[in-house]
Write a protein that binds this DNA or RNA. Structure first.
Lengths: 213, 213
DNA sequence: AAGTTGTTAACTGTCGACAGTTGGCAGAAT
DNA sequence: ATTCTGCCAACTGTCGACAGTTAACAACTT
């Protein structure tokens, strides 16, 4: 809830700053967060920082231990499987909704992102930003704000996993191809096929993350 | 994250107390939450109360407005549809997982809850507690802790909707019947059928909630 | 009378200080 | 050498007070 709107006030800003610190791996996996130290470093009081920490914890980016504070979670293989079960549940449903509700403009947008991905790939780059852009375009087509919000939270936790494994996004042809198959299924308004393609896509991404680490 | 474990400390306890106040409708829909007043009423300081408020907000049980504090959300029909899209996404996936992973013990447990529901129904009662127990048993069978957690959060928001509409749970034969069909599909390890049954079940519950209010 | 502006009270946002708990470390006993 | 015990430092949990903002009300203008 209200992830973008509450950039008001010190607590809201601190959420953004701390999120970046965690996602970039500047605060490594397993590392504890010292309240007084970080508060001084950010030039703020402990109050807003605590609220920011609790917020990030509710997103799964931090883990709270009573009287021991917060630390960045360290995910084992079991945790990765659990996270991708959640992401798959949400994003397959989003693919279904997108297939049912997409407009021609949505399709155009998704094709644009896919084309940009291919163009970037030929130059040897396939930035994670473009991958997120594609999934974001799909979420827009699904027109389900709550599902979209939860998908973004799950994706964020995957980003954290990549940071923990010190992985820059692997440049994969397979992902772009699967995106295009997804576009096709959504274009045909074939919800079942879209969900199935999404499921296999995410399974492959998960396995690649597991084997690479 | 950590919804059950952080009952330590005043903030954790306050989360539980405040959650009850919201879910029972003691704090009505649309009503604002006064920090100083509620803090005095609970005999605590504003710090822990603020953290509790932020926590409930992250669960969707409260809405934060910059410099205006928190209030219980008022859901219109659009909001109800959006919420049930999320719940359906999660719980259909849970049904799929349950069909794939259920043990005989899981089946037995679900049948027990269903039998208890029927017994209660003959006496004119069908407590919401038993409905939650059934869905809880299904979640256990799914063996996906993150999905289960999100399902419970979504269910909780539905409870809030019922409280807002001052609805006691309607005694519905249809729900119990649908539960049994779900058990059958899960027993047959038919994931597609389980998901389909769950989807129609939730659609019916949603429509009933919309028409009754 | 309607609209506008100045004022004010109530509330949230933030801070610094104090209290309580935890885990580690040093030292004694076996 | 090892284990147990008592201390201690560092940290989190909590509190009360101050600062900043908002929305409503009153007075004034047109």
């Amino acid at each position: 809830m209200s992830v973008d709107l509450v950039h008001t006030g010190l607590a809201g800003q601190t959420v953004a700053v701390l999120r970046e610190l965690v996602l970039t791996g500047e605060i490594a996996a397993g590392e504890r967060v010292n309240e007084v130290g970080l508060a001084q470093r950010l030039g703020i009081s402990r109050g807003p920082l605590r609220e920011a920490i609790r917020h990030l914890a509710s997103e799964g980016l931090l883990v709270l231990t009573p009287n021991r504070g917060a630390h960045v979670p360290v995910a084992d293989n079991t945790g990765v499987h659990a996270l991708f079960e959640l992401r798959s549940a949400l994003e397959c449903a989003a693919a279904r909704l997108a297939a049912a509700r997409r407009t021609d403009a949505d399709l155009t947008r998704m094709r644009e992102v896919s084309a940009a991905s291919r163009a970037a790939f030929t130059t040897g780059e396939f930035p994670y930003r473009l991958d997120l852009a594609f999934h974001g375009a799909l979420l827009e087509a699904a027109r389900s704000p709550l599902v979209a919000e939860q998908v973004r939270l799950a994706q964020q936790r995957v980003v954290l996993l990549r940071a923990a494994k010190e992985l820059t996004f692997s440049h994969e042809q397979a992902s772009i191809d699967e995106h295009d198959v997804l576009i096709e299924a959504i274009g045909d308004q074939d919800a079942d096929r879209a969900a199935a393609v999404m499921a296999t896509h995410l399974d492959r991404v998960r396995d690649q993350l597991l084997t690479t680490g």
